[in-house]
Amino acid sequence: MESIFGLVGDGFAVVAADTSAVHSILVHKSNEDKIMVLDSHKLVAASGEPGDRVQFTEYIQKNVALYQFRNGIPLTTAAAANFTRGELATALRKNPYMVNILMAGFDKEAGASLYYIDYIASLHKVEKGAFGYGSYFALSLMDRHYHSGMSVEEAIDLVDKCIIEIRSRLVVAPPNFVIKIVDKDGAREYAWRESLRDASVAAA
């Protein structure tokens, strides 16, 4: 029942992901961070088989860091996305990774961007995207409410709408979500949305 989604606003990109680690009918933990800070200005939100998700995202993170160490300059978001797509395509013909990725980043020249990379190595630059069961609801809400040039407040409000809809519509809905943002000031955690805390705030 994984859910990851993201969108691009005016000078920033925001991504959100559920924090449930689930196997079969068991919830192992509810604070699993599925959004990795790739470098100072890039985020990778991933869904899929837990082992593949962790191993592949760490592999990408270390290779992006290695490139910067060897060459003295960081990869652009587009270059990192294409590298990621290439590694998935290579693995597809050997031992595939069952992992879907939303890569968000900010570059001085290109600004904020979001890339959609699925487990069969398709790559698309998008303004909004989602993976997992929650994508059915997140994408429909973003189709309705998203517009280019959104402010941070508008984008977070839309993200919250998506979280509320996922919680209310899915039979087994993940209770907690993490939201991260990347802009000219860097990639960082923005907020956690925890169902118990949200309920207590609403009651107050």
Rank of each mutant, 00 (worst) to 15 (best):
E165D: 12
R167T: 04
V171N: 13
R169E: 12
V178T: 09
I120E: 04
R167N: 01
V182M: 00
D143Y: 10
D157G: 14
C162T: 08
A155N: 11
L139P: 05
E153F: 09
I179S: 03
K180Y: 05
V152W: 01
K128D: 02
A173V: 03
S168W: 03
E154V: 14
H124A: 08
V178K: 09
H124E: 03
S122N: 15
L141C: 11
L139A: 13
H145Q: 13
L170P: 06
K125D: 04
S168K: 14
A130M: 00
L170K: 02
F131S: 05
G132P: 02
A130N: 05
K161E: 14
L158P: 05
S168L: 02
Y119H: 14
I179A: 01
E127W: 09
I181T: 08
S135T: 02
G132D: 02
D143M: 11
S151P: 11
H124P: 04
D143P: 09
M142K: 09
S135R: 06
V182C: 00
P175A: 08
A173G: 04
Y119K: 13
H124N: 05
H147C: 10
L141V: 04
Y133G: 13
V171A: 14
Y133I: 01
M150Q: 12
G132C: 00
Y133T: 14
M142E: 08
A173P: 12
E165C: 03
Y133E: 08
Y119A: 08
C162S: 03
V159W: 06
H147Y: 11
I164F: 00
D157H: 12
P174R: 00
K125F: 03
H124L: 08
M150Y: 10
P175S: 01
L139D: 15
A130F: 03
A130D: 05
S122C: 07
I179L: 02
R144N: 14
D143F: 10
K161L: 12
S135L: 04
K128I: 06
L139H: 05
V178C: 14
Y119D: 06
K128N: 07
V152C: 08
F177E: 06
S151C: 11
A173D: 10
I166A: 01
A121I: 04
I120C: 06
S151N: 09
F137P: 10
E127R: 15
I156G: 05
A121W: 01
F137H: 04
F137Y: 15
E154D: 08
R144L: 14
L123C: 13
F137S: 07
I166C: 01
L139G: 05
P174L: 07
S140K: 15
E127I: 07
V126W: 00
P175E: 02
G149L: 06
V182A: 03
Y119I: 04
E154I: 12
